[in-house]
């Protein structure tokens, strides 16, 4: 177990910051592209935390999970962009609130 160049706390702080930025993006933006981007940011934030933790304890699990997240993110973007295209076609807009058919 060796010390990192950058202390763990700092990495985690950055990760939290990124996560918060992504979350705020989700809460504030209406444009569906931005929402997708915010999601990616959040995923990356958690991936960063995994990497840092894995490095800190010298365990490979962190990197494994990072790879998993990476692939999930790729798949998600693929599906998400497909949905974006569909929404653009149907509603002629990229505004999320135009598609709120599920209102109770």
């Amino acid at each position: 177990m060796q010390d990192l160049v950058v202390p763990l706390n700092h990495v985690l702080f950055v990760s939290t910051l990124l996560f918060t930025i992504g979350m705020l993006g989700l809460m504030i933006r209406r444009n569906i592209i931005f929402i997708l981007m915010s999601l990616e940011v959040m995923l990356n934030a958690s991936a960063l935390a995994f990497i840092a933790a894995g490095a800190h304890w010298g365990q490979p699990d962190g990197q494994v999970i990072f790879l998993l997240i990476l692939s999930v993110a790729a798949a998600e973007v693929a599906v998400g962009l497909g949905l974006v295209l569909q929404i653009q076609k149907r509603f002629n807009s990229l505004d999320m609130d135009d598609a709120n058919r599920m209102r109770g």
């Binding site: 504030i28 609130d97 709120n100 058919r101 599920m102 109770g104």
Partner: peptide
């Protein structure tokens, strides 16, 4: 059912 507004951002806020 009022809380089920269909607004993504509102859901996000409640999740948070």
């Amino acid at each position: 059912s009022f809380s089920q507004s269909g607004r993504m951002r509102w859901y996000m806020v409640s999740v948070a």
